[in-house]
Computed example of a mutant assay.
Amino acid sequence: MSTATGPLTEAEAQALREAVTEAVLATPAGLREALGSDPDAALRLVAATRVAAEESSRLLREAVAGARGAGHSWDTLGRLLGVSKQAAQQRFATPTRPAPEDAAGERERVLLSPVTAFDEMPLLAERGRRGWHVVDYGTLYHLLEASDTQWEHHRQPWSPGARGRLEAEGWTLVKTMTFPWGYYKRPLGLPPEA
């Protein structure tokens, strides 16, 4: 489908705009009602809109990273964003992948790269059985650390209640929940396979 909004229909794009507007006006208690009578409500609206813009910007960065991880090109992303591929890459490219550290006292680390959304989970399952677990990740890579137990890894699509449910089941979030998903790990208490 080729529209001004890319793979979204115009109706879907409009529904998203309306949902964001509604969230900004409805979340600070009483904001909508106060706008016509309280000058300070205008400042609360600015603050609420800033938070929404920051969150939208974060979601966009993570969505672009997710699309890159799924194998989409900068050219495709640039067209979707209405900029050149170079502009998209300059704005959204992640910094250089971290190098594994080998400082005294730290466990051995390896970089699993390149990986995509389509092959990372089987690779993490195999490495987890051998005692490796994720300590960091980004576009096209996972940084793994050696341990003396087997690990399992889970990729969870973002949802409001997922973190609490998974933590209750013994999973640990690798780092702050990212959009569109977060990565979790848990030790299995078994010695690593050779």
Rank of each mutant, 00 (worst) to 15 (best):
T3S: 15
A70P: 00
R155A: 11
V51D: 02
V83G: 02
L77S: 04
R163V: 05
V51I: 10
A4E: 13
Y137P: 02
T3A: 11
V24I: 14
E108H: 09
L173Q: 05
Y137R: 02
R68A: 09
A99G: 11
L190I: 13
T178E: 12
G161K: 08
L190V: 15
G66I: 09
A168Y: 07
A4H: 10
V134D: 01
A194I: 06
S56N: 14
T49D: 01
S37V: 10
A125N: 13
P39S: 06
T178I: 05
E54L: 12
L123M: 13
A13D: 09
Q90K: 15
G69N: 11
R61T: 09
L144E: 01
G66P: 07
E54D: 12
G128M: 00
R130Q: 14
E22F: 04
T149D: 03
A99H: 13
Q150A: 10
R165A: 01
R32Q: 12
P98R: 06
L35T: 00
G6Q: 07
P39F: 04
T178D: 10
L111D: 09
G131W: 04
P100W: 11
R58M: 09
E12R: 08
F179C: 08
T9C: 11
A168H: 12
W132P: 03
A15F: 04
L144W: 06
L45H: 02
G36A: 13
G78W: 01
L111K: 07
A53Y: 07
G128W: 05
L60D: 12
A48P: 04
T178K: 01
T172K: 15
S159E: 03
E18G: 13
D102N: 12
L25Y: 08
R61H: 13
A104R: 08
R163P: 04
A48E: 00
Y184T: 03
T96Y: 08
Y141F: 15
T21P: 03
E126G: 00
V115P: 02
A125I: 12
Y184V: 04
G138K: 06
L123P: 03
R58C: 10
G128D: 00
V46L: 14
T94N: 12
G170F: 08
T5S: 14
G131L: 03
L123I: 00
G105C: 11
P192E: 07
E55P: 04
W171Y: 10
G131M: 00
L16V: 14
R91P: 02
E152Q: 13
L35P: 01
Q90C: 01
F118Y: 11
V83L: 03
L81Y: 04
P39H: 08
T9D: 07
P122R: 13
L188P: 05
L143A: 04
T172R: 15
V20D: 00
S2Y: 01
T76P: 00
E22M: 11
Q156S: 12
T96D: 15
E145K: 05
W181D: 09
A93T: 07
A29W: 01
S56P: 03
A67L: 14
D38Q: 11
S56G: 15
H154Q: 09
E152L: 05
Q89M: 14
V115A: 06
L123A: 05
D40T: 09
R58F: 14
A162E: 03
A63S: 15
T96S: 14
A4M: 12
H154S: 08
